[in-house]
Structure formats: structure tokens, C-alpha cells
Nucleic acid binder design. Structure first.
Length: 897
RNA sequence: GGGCGCAUAGCUCAGCGGUAGAGCACCACCUUGACACGGUGGGGGUCACAGGUUCAAUCCCUGUUGCGCCCA
């Protein structure tokens, strides 16, 4: 016997274990079934489950469970990525509490410590995914730092290098002074800040008393200036182009150059050029073959190393000792000191308030410093071409399609990808340097040594590159490295290309772009056929969830409170295409009601001895009720299936919800109650068998979204052992004999009950008062229906009797119109005649109003001539129906007196 | 500045060339044989604005306004 209420916590723990231990989540490479593969976009190993994860993994799990039920060999590949910077940060913070630092420990000891941490805490998110009910193939779990995946990384690196698609270069990179590492463009976020625009006066060489005033937001980079640029069209500065300015504080002469980069409408129209510390200036420097001295070091502190020889004393403009004294100062102190000194020298013209975009490291939170360093780069532009083509040709399809524009925009304009990171935790770059700096790229040291031997003619000591690769480099290989590549495993051709990647649009540049490039390069085929982009999670008010706003909702708390099924169903119901998901406890609570509703319906059926009938054949049922609910179930199956096929989880959820609640519970069960009460009649036996069959369909339909409660009921009713619903077949529609007739009959009965209820409710007749229902002008067929459904009509329509009305409608009856039938409910002493009159008049007005609308449409000659004939006919029918209804209401009013 | 998206009931959102929908919230009634996490009924909308196409526009097109996001 089912408990009074469903207890999610207990069921969830038990069932997940059952599924996992029975191998229900496992893919089977040896099966004949068509594979269906979803690669989990691996969460950071440092991560813990947040609502965004809950959303994306619920979607993925629902898709996987659906496909598994349709008979596909489903592989949902789990794992985590090693999250270079994030993990190194976590462990360094841990070390700090012990009073240790990474540098003291040394690289090897530190890495041992990271692995130790990973062993202890790295499984956090994968444990939490289990609580979501995620049916991942756990024995296949991978980690981007696994030996196999590491081998894949090295192999790809060597392959790309051999083709010239990986190379070393000295370029400006986004440098994070806190981590002291390069980071990618995507890890930089612009923040609008209150800053200043300093107007600095640079003396013109040889023209005493003349200055050119440059406007800058970064006065501290002045020692690295190599030119002043003005727009070639700017008339104010024509005579200065080609002349030299004296760089204040430094004393060096710098040319005044003409360059489009300078915008005459901004500031003074003259800008200082510091190629080593600004991306735009770098480009100007290249165009004009300017030197590129760096004046900030890796900690973003002032260094004179590259400009020491150029300091010159110029009276009133530059005094070498000033800058020399500032060596080692950080960039913020440097700025203050330089501005103060310029002011003292009367070289500061003015300071304006200025809002500007300042790049910040998204993890460190500190301003990024463009820095000129030698790094490893990947030729993303070349790799992006086949990826763009694949999407253009439809070999990979975005759902919804519009996201391909975002993808194209990024991929067609992609910059060289800086793949080296000055970290310790990650895949160390497989490059070794000889004593003279010659580089040997190989999968291992032995390979490099062999190359070195060939190059030098004798053994030479080699030193491996200290840097590691960007985490995304290894994540980009995930769709094939997890399947064993570069080994030719049975899994590789079977599960690659994968079927669908599920993610949010903010990851298109990361996941999608990287995996497409790497997949096409290594496998010569796309990594996924479909990319399903869902919305982002927001709070109930539509705000982005963030720790600083304090509006973060912990999915595990929602699960504790309402159960996993309620959370999952809510997510499915709200995940429309191209819409963000606004989620809070209230909406989860309301969908928990649905879980409870299903539970209670099942409990009622159980109490009425409904159980699955082994050889039940839906095509053999005789009763209209049976035929009707089976037919309605067919529709629900079709809707749910179509919704899944088009990634419309909201439609899927609503189809399941409506069928279960509004068809099965609201009408079928209510109609079945009197039948059940008959005891052991053949009719009761049929309705019980049908009830069980349809409950089975419901459990199957809802299982992808609500795996636990459906699985419990599946077991309780004996559809199969508990834990086997996950492997059950997705329901299919079966032909129902004479479905149309059953639909017509049930629709009529439902209509009758609804009309009666509405009239009684509006007339404020208490449900405890039973009254006769009299049918005027009913056909023989309709009277037959009324007779067959007498019990439910009595029960649900609070009727003492239902009978045909031969003569006049009794005085004081409430009346309603159902098609050609006038329903009369004699309530002489109970109703307020004026209220009844008002009600009927309102109804009549509504009918007349509708009729008039249709009539005017039909009187439009162009409409009749040009509209589709069936539309015209439809409107003629509607007009007739409204007119008839109005006439019957009119008659009812007259009878009322 | 460029691009994308959104604007429909109090709220959250479906929808779609011809009849405007759901859930929640609201109001009224109801402990009717599972379910008050329930049942029944009800109120509530110039479908942002202005043009255009069409026999017909909430839907298609153009523009405007407002909001959101991404990129520079």
C-alpha cells in the first residue's frame, strides 16, 4: 500500500543506488542499438552544483532518459576539467592557511598537493550530480588530467605544431598580475569605471615654449612612450607631423606620427603611444616600426630595465633620478608619482573626469595589464574555418538557429589563441629547449631528446618549457579524448560524432568553438550534430544570480525541500527556447503539487485494485470511457514525443501535465469511480485494466522529467521491478477502435457536466443541494448518452435525476444551452429569478455579439470571394451556432417570464 | 557604435494569418468516495506604439519607444 504522501529523500537515495548498481546508466558498445551520445560539458573540478548546473544537467538527463527509453544505446559521458587557475587558487589558499606558499614547496610537491586535494574534494560536484538524478555512465568518468587525456593533449599539440598551427610568438597578451599568467580574451571582462583623462604637455623639440598636449587614461605608462600620434587629417597638428617631442621625465625624443588610430574628436586629438602596454598602441607601433620597451614587469611593477640607457636630464622636463627612485613601485603608486611630478613641472595641463572601460581578470578581479611576452599561440583562424563551414553546411545545427550568428561572429573574427599559462597545475607544454634555446616539440622527453641528438649531433641537456596549457585546450578534445583517442577504441567510431551538446549561450565561445575546432582537426568530423542552447538561470525577478547580490538559490536546498522530481519538472516546464529561466522556491513548490497529484491518483487507483494486466490489449477495449482515455493518451504521447524531438522541454512538460491532471485525474478517474464501485463486473475489470495501462503510459511519459516518483510507482504497481522503468520502452500510440465516437460522447458528457456546474455555481446553489437535470430538445443519441452516464452526471453535476423534458420548462428553472439541447434545472425556491435573468441576458448578449462579428465578416464580399473555402464555411457554421444559441437563450428568457 | 533577443491577463510565460491560452496569484463556493500540495465556478487582455502588406494582422514587413544580453 502506498504511503499517504511521497517521501522523496528516502526514495531518491534508494533508487539512485539501484539504478547505478544495476548498470542502468551504462552505455553498451557491443549492442546493436543505435547510439545516442551526449558529452557532459565537464564542470570545473573545483565546482559545486549551482542552479545553472541544475538546469543544464536536468535538460541533458531528460534527453538521455528519453532516448534510452526509445531504445537507443545512450552514452552520457561524465567527468570534470582540471580548471588550471581556479584549482591552483584553491590549493594555494589552502596552503596559505598552513603558512606555506607554492614557491617554497616547489613544483613537484605542489602538484602532489593538488592531486591530494583533488582526491579529497574534487568529487564534490559529481556527488551532487547524483542528487539531481543524473544518469551518467560513471565508470567512464574522465578527468582532463588523466593519463589518457594527457596523452591526447600531447599528441594534438605535436600534430598542430607540425602543421605550423601552434607556434611561439612575442606579442601583447592579457596579463593577470595577480596570477602572473597570461589569460585568454574570454577570461577578461570590461568594467566601466570612474577614471580620469589626464592632459599632459610634451615639449616640442627645438621649439622652446611649444607643447603638444596628449590626453591619456594611463599616465603611468609614460616612460614607455615611443611616439605621439595625431590623425593625418587633423589640421591642428599638420606642421608637427615628423617633428619630435621630448618625453617628459625620460628626456628621450619621440616622433610625432600621423596615424588613423588617433581620433581628432576625442581628448586633444593627440595620443601617446606605448606599444608594450596597450593593444591599439601595439598596432600603431607595428605600423610605424617603433621600438616597444616594457616598463612594467610581471607583477605590474615599474621596471627601468629596458629604458635605463635612455634617461636623460632635460632641465625643467626630465631628471633621471626621479624615475630611478620609482623602480619596483606598483602601477598604481607609479601613476600617482608621475602625475604629481608632471604637475610640479607644470606639464599637467588639466584632469577631466572620465568613464572608461577597464579590463579585469574575471577570476582575479584585478585590472589586466597588456604585457609583451613570448607565449605559445594556436592559429585559431585556420582551425575556425572548417568549423564555420560545418555549421554553414548544416553538419552541425544550432537549436535555436539564431545562435549560429553568435558563433559565426566570433569564429570569423577570431584572434590567435594564446594557449600557454604561467601556472603549475595543468598540462605542461611538451616542448624542450636545448642549451642555445632551440625548441624541440615532442610527445615526451625521449622524443625531444632524439630530435636534439639529430640536431646537435650529440646529446645535450634539455629543459622542458615551464608553462602549462590553457584548460580549454584539453577541454576542446573532450568529445574524442574521453573515448580513448588517439587509440582506435571501439567507442571512438561508435559514439563520435556525438548527437547533441547541451549548454547555455555564454559557453558558445568556450565549449562550442574549441570543441568544433579540435574535433574537426583531429577527427575530421564535427564533435556534435546538434548544439542545443538553453537559457540562463535567473532569480524570480529576472536578476542574474550572484553571490554579491545574495540572490543565489542552492539547488540542493530546493531538492531537500521539495524533492528532485519537483525541481526537475519545474526546470523542464520553464525551459523555453531562447528564454532565460526565472526560478525561485515558489514555482518549484507549485510543481511539487503535480508530483503529489500523481502520487494521490496512483494511491486511489491502488485502493481500487487497479493493477497491470499482463496480456492487456488496448485495441480490444469496448467502453467509450476506455476508448476515450486511450485516444487522449495517444495524443499526449505524440505531443511529448514531438516536443522531445524538437528540444521543447516546456511543451513536453506541459503535455504530460495536462494529460495527467486535466484528462486522467479530472475526468477519467472521476468517471471511473462509479464503475469501480460496481465491484467485479466486466466493465469494472476493463476500466481497471485501462486505468493501469494508462497509468503505465503516464509513468513512462513523465519519467524523463520526474524519474523518482514514476519509478517508485512503477515498482509499487508491479509494472516491473523497482528500478526498471528507466529501461522501459517509450510509449507508442496504438489504434483505438471508434475513437471519434468515443470522443464525441465523452465531450458531450463533459460539456453537460460543465454547463450544469457553471449554472449552479453562478446561481449560488450549494453543492449539498441536489436538483434534477432536465434535457429539452435532446436527440435520442443525446438521451442515450445521458442515460449511460447517469452516475457520473449525478455525482459531478449534483443531480437528483437526469431525464428528458417533454413538456414545458418548469417555472423557476435555471437554464443553459448545450448545442441544440436546453438544460433546465428546476430550482423554484432556490434561485433568484432576477439573477437568473441577468445571467441569461449576459449569455445572450455574448452570443449575439459573436454572431454579429461573424456576420459582418461574412457580409464582406472580398472575404467570401478570397478566403479559403473551408474558412468561409467554418464561419458560416459558427454564425449558425451563435444564432441558434442566442435564439435558445431568448426562448429561455421568455420562459422565465 | 555593431549584433541578437524580448515587449500578450496582476506575475511568469505559451501561442499564431481567421475563435486570445496555461500556470501561479485573485474572488466565491465546497471537508462530494485519492488529493486543501485538493475540487468547482468566476473576474481579468486596444496582444508596447505608428505605418504598411492582406479579404483578414497579436502573428508577416518597416519604423518608433522601452528593456535585456553579447561584441567593440
Amino acid at each position: 500500500m502506498l504511503d499517504k504522501t511521497f517521501a522523496p529523500a528516502e526514495a531518491e537515495a534508494r533508487l539512485y543506488k539501484t539504478w547505478e548498481e544495476s548498470g542502468a546508466f551504462a552505455a553498451d558498445p557491443t549492442s546493436d542499438a543505435t547510439p545516442f551520445t551526449v558529452m557532459i560539458p565537464p564542470p570545473n573540478v573545483t565546482g559545486s552544483l549551482h542552479m545553472g548546473h541544475a538546469l543544464t544537467f536536468t535538460v541533458q538527463d531528460s534527453l538521455i532518459r528519453y532516448r534510452r527509453m526509445t531504445g537507443r544505446d545512450a552514452l552520457w559521458q561524465p567527468g570534470t576539467d582540471h580548471a588550471g587557475i581556479a584549482t591552483q587558487m584553491v590549493v594555494e589558499r589552502l596552503l596559505a592557511t598552513e603558512g606555506k606558499t607554492r614557491k617554497e614547496m616547489g613544483r613537484e610537491a605542489f602538484l602532489d598537493r593538488v592531486w591530494q586535494w583533488k582526491g579529497e574534494s574534487g568529487g564534490n560536484i559529481t556527488r551532487q550530480l547524483r542528487r539531481l538524478g543524473a544518469s551518467l555512465d560513471w565508470p567512464r568518468e574522465r578527468f582532463t588530467m588523466d593519463a589518457g587525456l594527457t596523452r591526447a593533449v600531447r599528441r594534438i599539440f605535436v600534430m598542430l605544431h607540425a602543421k605550423g598551427l601552434i607556434y611561439r610568438d612575442r606579442r601583447l597578451v592579457n596579463w593577470d598580475p595577480k596570477f602572473q599568467s597570461a589569460i585568454s580574451d574570454l577570461e577578461v571582462e570590461s568594467k566601466e569605471m570612474d577614471g580620469s583623462l589626464w592632459h599632459l604637455r610634451y615639449p616640442i623639440a627645438g621649439q622652446d615654449g611649444r607643447f603638444i598636449t596628449v590626453a591619456t587614461t594611463r599616465p603611468e605608462t609614460l616612460p614607455g612612450d615611443v611616439a605621439v600620434a595625431v590623425n593625418p587629417e587633423d589640421e591642428r597638428y599638420q606642421d608637427l607631423i615628423g617633428k619630435f617631442a621630448i618625453l617628459p621625465l625620460v628626456g628621450r625624443l619621440i616622433p610625432i606620427v600621423a596615424d588613423e588610430h588617433s581620433d581628432p574628436t576625442k581628448g586633444t586629438g593627440a595620443v601617446k603611444i606605448t606599444p608594450a602596454h596597450d593593444f591599439n598602441d601595439f598596432a600603431v607601433g607595428q605600423r610605424h616600426s617603433l621600438p616597444m620597451p616594457s616598463i612594467l614587469d610581471r607583477q605590474a611593477a615599474f621596471t627601468l630595465t629596458e629604458i635605463a640607457d635612455e634617461l636623460r636630464a632635460v632641465p625643467g622636463v626630465a631628471e633621471p633620478s626621479f624615475l630611478q627612485a620609482l623602480a619596483g613601485e606598483d602601477r598604481f603608486k607609479l601613476r600617482a608619482a608621475i602625475v604629481a611630478e608632471l604637475e610640479r613641472l607644470d606639464l599637467l595641463d588639466k584632469v577631466e573626469k572620465h568613464r572608461n572601460q577597464v579590463p579585469h581578470g574575471d577570476r582575479s578581479g584585478v585590472p589586466i595589464e597588456p604585457l609583451l611576452t613570448t607565449q605559445w599561440f594556436c592559429d585559431a583562424a585556420t582551425l575556425a574555418k572548417p568549423a564555420v563551414e560545418a555549421v554553414e553546411q548544416g553538419r552541425t545545427v544550432f537549436v535555436p538557429k539564431q545562435w549560429e550568428n553568435t558563433f559565426f561572429a566570433w569564429m570569423r573574427d577570431i584572434e590567435p589563441w594564446c594557449i600557454s599559462r604561467q601556472l603549475w597545475w595543468g598540462h605542461r607544454i611538451p616542448a624542450w629547449y636545448g642549451p642555445d634555446g632551440v625548441v624541440f616539440v615532442a610527445e615526451d622527453e625521449a622524443g625531444a631528446a632524439a630530435q636534439a641528438l639529430a640536431h646537435y649531433g650529440e646529446a645535450q641537456p634539455l629543459a622542458q618549457d615551464d608553462d602549462v596549457l590553457d584548460t580549454w585546450f584539453s577541454s576542446g578534445l573532450w568529445p574524442f579524448s574521453t573515448l580513448g583517442w588517439p587509440d582506435q577504441t571501439p567507442e571512438l567510431p561508435r559514439y563520435y560524432p556525438t548527437d547533441v551538446l547541451v549548454t547555455a549561450h555564454d559557453i558558445i565561445f568556450f565549449w562550442v568553438a574549441r570543441m568544433m575546432m579540435m574535433g574537426l582537426f583531429a577527427m575530421d568530423d564535427v564533435p556534435f550534430k546538434t548544439i542545443y542552447i538553453h537559457g540562463l538561470v535567473r532569480d524570480e525577478r529576472g536578476q542574474k544570480m550572484s553571490k554579491s547580490k545574495g540572490n543565489v538559490i542552492d539547488p540542493l536546498e530546493l531538492i531537500d525541500q521539495y524533492g528532485t522530481d519537483a525541481l526537475r519538472f519545474t526546470i523542464c516546464a520553464l525551459t523555453g527556447p531562447g528564454r532565460d529561466v526565472k526560478l525561485g522556491p515558489a514555482v518549484v513548490e507549485s510543481y511539487r503539487s503535480f508530483v503529489t497529484k500523481l502520487w494521490n491518483a496512483a494511491r486511489f487507483l491502488e485502493m481500487n485494485e487497479v493493477k497491470p494486466v499482463a496480456d492487456f490489449d488496448p485495441a480490444s477495449v469496448k467502453l467509450p470511457l476506455s476508448r476515450w482515455i486511450l485516444d487522449t493518451a495517444n495524443t499526449a504521447i505524440a505531443e511529448a514525443t514531438t516536443a522531445f524531438e524538437s528540444y521543447r522541454l516546456d511543451d513536453y512538460a506541459s503535455a504530460g501535465y495536462r494529460f495527467t491532471w486535466n484528462s486522467f485525474c479530472d475526468w477519467f478517474i472521476e468517471f471511473a469511480k462509479p464503475v469501480f464501485a460496481q465491484g467485479d463486473t466486466p466493465e469494472a475489470a476493463e476500466v481497471r485494466a485501462v486505468a493501469a495501462h494508462v497509468l503505465g503510459i503516464i509513468l513512462k511519459l513523465l519519467h524523463p522529467a520526474m524519474p523518482y516518483v514514476t519509478e517508485v510507482l512503477w515498482g509499487e504497481f508491479g509494472f516491473g521491478a523497482e528500478g526498471t522503468l528507466i529501461k522501459a520502452n517509450w510509449p507508442e500510440a496504438v489504434a483505438v477502435p471508434e475513437a471519434a465516437a468515443a470522443r464525441a460522447e465523452l465531450d458531450w458528457v463533459v460539456g453537460l457536466i460543465t454547463e450544469v456546474r457553471a449554472v449552479r455555481s453562478e446561481m449560488r446553489v450549494a453543492p449539498s443541494v441536489l436538483a434534477p437535470i432536465l434535457l429539452k430538445d435532446a436527440s435520442a443519441e443525446e438521451l442515450g448518452r445521458a442515460a449511460r452516464w447517469i452516475d457520473p452526471i449525478r455525482r459531478m453535476g449534483r443531480a437528483s435525476e437526469v431525464s428528458p423534458l417533454a413538456g414545458e420548462v418548469p417555472k423557476g428553472s435555471a437554464q443553459a444551452i448545450l448545442g441544440s439541447v436546453t438544460i433546465a434545472i428546476p430550482l423554484a425556491d432556490l434561485i433568484d429569478l432576477s439573477a437568473e435573468r441577468a445571467r441569461l441576458e449576459k449569455e445572450r448578449a455574448k452570443a449575439l455579439d459573436e454572431a454579429q462579428k461573424v456576420r459582418s465578416k461574412l457580409s464582406n464580399e472580398s472575404f467570401v470571394a478570397r478566403a479559403k473555402p473551408e474558412v468561409v464555411q467554418e464561419n458560416r457554421d459558427r454564425l449558425a451556432a451563435f444564432e441558434a444559441e442566442a435564439a435558445r437563450l431568448e426562448a429561455a428568457l421568455i420562459r422565465l417570464g
